[in-house]
Amino acid sequence: MNLELLAVFAGASIRLSAPMMLAATGELVSERAGVLNMSVEGMMLTGAFLGATFSWLTGNPSIGLLCGMLGVIPLALLQAFLSVTLRANQIVTGIGINILALGGTTLAYREIFGERSSAAIPGLAHWSPPVLGKLPLIGEPVFGQVWLLYAGLAVLLATSVIMRRTALGVALHATGVAPRSVDQSGLPVARIRYGAVLFSGVMSAAAGCFISIGDIHTFTEGMTNGTGYLAIAAIIFGNWKIGRTALACLLFGAATAMQFQLPMFGLHVPTALLIMLPYLLALVAVAGLIGRQTAPPALTQPFKR
């Protein structure tokens, strides 16, 4: 088998897993705090649209990324207000926000870019580690990625350390396990959950920006195409552990990359089967067929003093 093609496949798998990893990092924190943020898909789509729009308007993709991440904060606050303050059903409110984001971005896209616009949008630069990027065969295809991917890996590692080694991480874990005990200890459960949802929103927006201005360099209606739901499934697949969740994202990314790479290897598999493969793996994860999952006990459960 051609090693160059394998390197291209590996690079594509990493690239396609990146938005899931970014979104799953934030969503894992939110779920660990007891809030199932089902609006990840809508927040990704909103971030993708705002990032593409402001990148196009300013000609600077970094400004687009910043605007995308900041612009999703009102949506995250809405999700937190509905879930934490009003104690509404987290699944229903999340799906409602996803529908709102889909309709809102579609309308705004048609008004700004035109219904059939395919305007090229300035994209984020690629970067590769100094030594790894110069390796023969695999250097550029595998490690020559958008810099946001490496920033996301740094955030993932920092999140892992914070969740495991700091008082904030202990408080987040405890809020998703026994929120009443956290409240009795004097810590503000609502504020912790608000902060977790906001972090989830910002990371989801970064994931959306990765798709629009990091990978495709344009915006299309509904372009996230279920990636936010795959990020949530990756958390279940990873049993709410950050390392396993990252590996699940890579697995889903590889399954997605097969749609484009298998014909290069001379393997002819029905396209429909390849398209459904990531979602089939997600179904396996949600159904619990990969072993017993242990969700935070207070996940989706509203807290009232």
Rank of each mutant, 00 (worst) to 15 (best):
P61D: 00
T105V: 10
L36S: 12
A24Q: 04
A255L: 07
P270F: 01
T271P: 06
V29F: 03
A12Q: 11
F54I: 08
L102V: 08
H126Q: 02
T159M: 02
A233K: 05
L22A: 03
G123V: 00
L36C: 05
L280V: 13
L5A: 15
L3P: 03
G59W: 12
N98Q: 14
Y229T: 09
G71K: 02
G34K: 01
M1V: 12
L36V: 07
M20G: 03
G195C: 11
F49L: 01
V202T: 14
L250W: 08
A101E: 04
V155M: 12
K241A: 14
L277K: 05
A76E: 09
A158S: 10
A125W: 00
R191E: 05
A233T: 09
A23V: 07
F237N: 13
L66S: 11
L168R: 01
V202G: 11
I162T: 04
R305W: 14
A205D: 07
T46V: 10
L283F: 05
F210I: 00
G208M: 05
L36I: 06
V146M: 00
A246E: 03
G195M: 11
P179L: 00
A205C: 08
Q259V: 14
N37K: 07
F81C: 07
G71R: 01
L262W: 04
A23D: 07
M258H: 10
L148Q: 06
A12R: 06
L281T: 05
L86P: 09
H126F: 02
G228A: 10
A151S: 12
G34E: 01
V269I: 13
T105R: 03
A10Q: 07
Y109T: 06
G195S: 10
P263L: 00
A287G: 15
K304P: 04
L198W: 02
F260C: 00
L172H: 09
R165L: 12
V92K: 15
F54T: 05
R244H: 12
